[in-house]
Write a protein that binds this DNA or RNA. Structure first.
Lengths: 186, 186
DNA sequence: ACCTGAACACCGTTCAAGT
DNA sequence: ACCTGAACACCGTTCAAGT
């Protein structure tokens, strides 16, 4: 990549990070280009779709979550590992308002730039769930897909202002429904 | 209301019904006015906000849901009444794609045209929940607000194409978490 | 190679001008 | 009273023209 292109790329990511933190993932791409002092076409050259921009922006976060799942898988009791990871991923998506809708479409759309990241998250979750199930700590009638749905629902709720005060309670209700009774006694 | 105004009003509702069924609640207002063969200002005169249009469009549905809750309250076992009503409301919102986001903001925003309808739904749910709790059939650590959150989460999930195949399973998981174990034995 | 911004086809919202 | 549509301030996306 040419030096000027590299600079534009980085400036765009930096500004996009800010703008999306301010107004959410539906932020105006025009506005991002403007604030990065870059032509609109330059933004489209580096990031052909909004999903490509989001993916570049969140790549390190996605990787960190996958790594975290591996660590928990080895370091913690299976039920606690699952719950802790759910908490992590929901906190992450909460910090990236508006990321949930694109993630839910991406998981089905193999051409989406976010597809791979979502699939990786889903399989991290599936692995944690599988271990908890083997330990008799989680219901066996769930799979990684169902877990992903539940995460998405919790994460979407978390985005809703009216839900804030009940976030913790609802999280426990759902995780309680995933885990088996015996797990709470440990 | 003048005869021509009345006619425009009805034509707008009719067209809006169609367009929203096709593309969801975020449909272009411009497009609705165009297809109703009415000036854009006329749409704004009759429906000053998108929420006002949605409210007019869904008023009868909202009332039917409240009435259904009353019927179930009297006619069915408390746990079955609650589950049946949850199913109804989720089916309803599913038919009105995109209605969930405005409903979730409306419940907190007293100035929203959808506010009253949402509050009414929430209290219908709260009444059903209260009876089930009195019968020892539902967890006592939930209230109408929490139930509304859970309904919203389920209804939002239902809008997601990737979730379709698991809709029934996740619905049962959540309702199972609301109801107490004894209830499933009845 | 890469950048730029005008151009196009859309929005939501307001409001002067018409009947 | 009510209706109309132009006007304004925005979008996303593409692409000819520039360096």
């Amino acid at each position: 990549m040419r030096a000027d292109a590299q600079k534009n790329y980085e400036k765009l990511l930096e500004v996009a990070q800010q703008v999306i933190a301010e107004v959410g993932a539906e932020a105006s791409l025009r506005d991002i280009a403007r604030r990065a002092k870059v032509g609109l076409g330059t933004l489209y050259r580096h990031f052909p779709t909004r999903e490509a921009l989001l993916e570049a922006l969140l790549r390190t976060h996605f990787e960190a979550l996958a790594a975290k799942a591996d660590t928990l898988q080895r370091a913690s009791a299976s039920d606690q590992a699952l719950v802790a990871w759910l908490q992590e991923i929901i906190e992450f998506t909460y910090r990236q308002r508006g990321i949930l809708a694109p993630m839910m479409s991406a998981i089905e759309d193999e051409s989406s730039a976010l597809h791979d990241a979502c699939v990786r998250l889903r399989s991290s979750g599936a692995a944690l769930l599988a271990r908890a199930q083997k330990d008799q700590k989680a219901r066996r009638d769930l799979d990684g897909d169902a877990l992903f749905d539940l995460i998405a629902a919790l994460a979407w709720l978390r985005e809703q202002p009216s839900h804030q005060v009940r976030a913790e309670r609802i999280f426990q209700l759902i995780t309680g429904a995933i885990l088996m009774e015996a797990a709470t006694a440990s």
